[in-house]
Computed example of a mutant assay.
Amino acid sequence: MYNAETPSRAELPSSSKLLRSTLLAAISAIVILVAIVLPAEYGVDPTGVGRVLRMTEMGEIKQQLAAEAAADASATPVGSPASTVAAVPANAGTAVSGTPKALDVIPKTAVAPVANSTWRDELTFTLTPGEGKEIKLRMTEGDKAEFQWIVNGGSVNYDTHGDGGGRSISYEKGRSVPADDGALVAAFTGNHGWYWRNRGPSDVKVVLRTRGQYTDIKQVQ
């Protein structure tokens, strides 16, 4: 049986080196916490770096969604999720003509079901009272994806947003909306999509249909 040789005292790091390494690690952790974690998770940006890197907005969105979840929990018991949407592989996208805009949305009253055969992907899931779900498209900057989602049995609060590469963006938000459709243009390479929350007293079924330029579609939360 092979035994490794025990290192000599001269080969071991000195106490001063260990202390210096520990201090450097602690300082690095504090810098990461203040400059990245606090802005991205809590919307707190004491240094201003998070605002420059566009992480503070993402943290503010998370805090707003968390506040809504707390309000839902205090108003209505939250049930277990009725269904789970797994990651869905998608085929190569088809280019859509037109000048890219941040978000081109058709008025809510104009939303109408479109034949399933015209869409590339379709996902259906149920939201119990107080439940939320997030689905994202993986897109390259400038990619354009058309979408349509319809709520059966009620309405939802939603946030259309994106994140990736240390950046985040909120395209549009709405409350008590029964349906929406339009074209989502990726402001940068990353994940772009929707977060829905059911603030009503009963279950609702959401049908999401997408097509256009994106690599795949997946459930994030």
Results as ranks from 00 to 15, higher is better:
residue 46 P to S: 07
residue 46 P to W: 04
residue 47 T to P: 02
residue 47 T to G: 01
residue 48 G to W: 04
residue 49 V to P: 03
residue 49 V to E: 03
residue 49 V to N: 04
residue 52 V to W: 12
residue 52 V to L: 12
residue 53 L to Y: 01
residue 53 L to K: 05
residue 54 R to M: 11
residue 54 R to H: 14
residue 55 M to F: 06
residue 56 T to V: 00
residue 56 T to E: 07
residue 56 T to I: 00
residue 58 M to F: 11
residue 58 M to V: 09
residue 59 G to H: 02
residue 59 G to K: 00
residue 59 G to D: 03
residue 60 E to S: 08
residue 60 E to F: 04
residue 60 E to M: 13
residue 61 I to T: 07
residue 64 Q to H: 15
residue 64 Q to F: 12
residue 64 Q to G: 08
residue 66 A to N: 13
residue 66 A to T: 11
residue 66 A to K: 13
residue 66 A to P: 03
residue 67 A to I: 04
residue 68 E to F: 15
residue 68 E to R: 15
residue 68 E to C: 07
residue 68 E to I: 08
residue 68 E to H: 12
residue 68 E to P: 05
residue 68 E to K: 13
residue 70 A to S: 15
residue 70 A to I: 10
residue 71 A to N: 12
residue 71 A to M: 14
residue 72 D to F: 13
residue 72 D to I: 11
residue 73 A to K: 15
residue 73 A to G: 04
residue 73 A to S: 10
residue 73 A to V: 07
residue 74 S to E: 15
residue 74 S to H: 08
residue 75 A to F: 14
residue 75 A to I: 05
residue 76 T to R: 14
residue 77 P to H: 07
residue 77 P to F: 09
residue 77 P to Y: 12
residue 78 V to A: 10
residue 78 V to I: 15
residue 79 G to V: 13
residue 79 G to C: 08
residue 81 P to V: 05
residue 81 P to C: 05
residue 82 A to Y: 09
residue 83 S to T: 14
residue 83 S to Y: 10
residue 85 V to W: 10
residue 86 A to P: 01
residue 87 A to Y: 06
residue 87 A to R: 09
residue 88 V to C: 03
residue 88 V to Y: 06
residue 88 V to F: 01
residue 89 P to I: 00
residue 90 A to W: 00
residue 91 N to V: 10
residue 91 N to W: 06
residue 92 A to N: 03
residue 92 A to G: 04
residue 92 A to I: 05
residue 92 A to Q: 06
residue 93 G to P: 07
residue 94 T to Q: 12
residue 96 V to N: 06
residue 97 S to C: 01
residue 97 S to N: 11
residue 98 G to I: 04
residue 98 G to Q: 08
residue 98 G to K: 05
residue 98 G to F: 03
residue 99 T to I: 04
residue 100 P to N: 08
residue 101 K to N: 13
residue 102 A to F: 06
residue 102 A to I: 08
residue 102 A to S: 10
residue 103 L to Y: 09
residue 103 L to W: 00
residue 103 L to M: 10
residue 105 V to P: 01
residue 105 V to F: 08
residue 105 V to W: 00
residue 106 I to V: 13
residue 106 I to N: 06
residue 107 P to S: 07
residue 109 T to R: 09
residue 109 T to L: 14
residue 110 A to G: 03
residue 110 A to C: 06
residue 110 A to N: 05
residue 110 A to V: 01
residue 111 V to T: 10
residue 112 A to V: 09
residue 113 P to Y: 02
residue 113 P to N: 02
residue 114 V to E: 09
residue 114 V to H: 08
residue 114 V to M: 08
residue 116 N to T: 07
residue 116 N to M: 01
residue 117 S to Q: 02
residue 118 T to Y: 03
residue 118 T to K: 08
residue 120 R to K: 12
residue 120 R to Y: 06
residue 121 D to Y: 03
residue 121 D to V: 06
residue 122 E to P: 05
residue 122 E to R: 11
residue 124 T to C: 06
residue 126 T to V: 15
residue 128 T to L: 13
residue 128 T to D: 07
residue 130 G to Y: 04
residue 131 E to L: 12
residue 131 E to C: 09
residue 132 G to W: 10
residue 132 G to R: 11
